[in-house]
Simulated scan of single mutants.
Amino acid sequence: MFVLEWCEFSWAVRNMFAAIGVPYHAIELDSAALQKDNVGGDLRAALGVKAGAPTIPQIFIGGEHVGGATETFDAFNDGTLKERLASVGLSMDASSIQNAYSFLPKWLEPRTRS
Results as ranks from 00 to 15, higher is better:
75 A>Y: 02
42 D>R: 14
68 G>C: 11
28 E>L: 04
87 S>Q: 12
36 K>Y: 01
82 K>S: 09
58 Q>S: 09
39 V>G: 07
79 G>R: 11
67 G>S: 14
68 G>T: 10
64 E>R: 15
39 V>P: 10
26 A>G: 05
41 G>N: 07
52 G>A: 09
58 Q>M: 10
57 P>L: 01
37 D>S: 09
30 D>G: 02
69 A>V: 07
87 S>A: 14
54 P>N: 09
61 I>G: 04
33 A>Q: 05
90 L>A: 09
85 L>T: 12
87 S>G: 11
49 V>K: 15
35 Q>D: 02
90 L>K: 13
51 A>M: 11
51 A>P: 10
75 A>F: 01
59 I>S: 05
50 K>F: 01
93 D>G: 15
24 Y>V: 12
87 S>H: 14
72 T>H: 06
31 S>E: 00
33 A>V: 03
94 A>K: 13
33 A>E: 00
42 D>I: 10
52 G>P: 08
55 T>A: 04
66 V>S: 12
56 I>D: 00
82 K>C: 07
31 S>K: 07
87 S>F: 08
61 I>Y: 05
66 V>G: 08
56 I>F: 00
78 D>I: 13
72 T>D: 02
58 Q>Y: 07
30 D>A: 05
76 F>H: 01
58 Q>E: 09
77 N>T: 09
72 T>I: 03
49 V>D: 08
87 S>N: 14
34 L>P: 06
55 T>Y: 01
45 A>K: 15
79 G>V: 10
63 G>P: 00
90 L>C: 11
46 A>H: 12
34 L>M: 04
57 P>C: 03
88 V>Y: 10
47 L>R: 10
89 G>D: 02
38 N>K: 13
84 R>G: 10
54 P>R: 14
82 K>E: 08
87 S>I: 06
39 V>Q: 13
81 L>M: 07
50 K>P: 01
36 K>D: 00
63 G>W: 01
71 E>R: 14
39 V>H: 12
78 D>W: 11
50 K>M: 02
84 R>F: 08
40 G>P: 06
45 A>I: 12
38 N>Q: 10
73 F>V: 01
36 K>S: 01
52 G>V: 11
58 Q>D: 06
45 A>Q: 14
45 A>S: 15
26 A>M: 01
78 D>Q: 11
92 M>N: 13
82 K>H: 13
85 L>F: 06
46 A>F: 10
47 L>S: 01
56 I>Q: 00
83 E>R: 15
58 Q>I: 09
61 I>M: 06
67 G>L: 08
88 V>M: 06
89 G>L: 04
32 A>D: 03
81 L>K: 11
24 Y>W: 12
24 Y>R: 10
33 A>Y: 01
92 M>Y: 13
37 D>T: 11
61 I>F: 04
72 T>L: 04
63 G>N: 00
37 D>C: 11
25 H>D: 03
59 I>H: 05
92 M>L: 15
68 G>M: 09
91 S>I: 08
75 A>G: 07
26 A>S: 08
78 D>M: 13
26 A>N: 01
45 A>P: 07
57 P>D: 02
46 A>Q: 15
60 F>Y: 06
89 G>T: 05
53 A>Q: 12
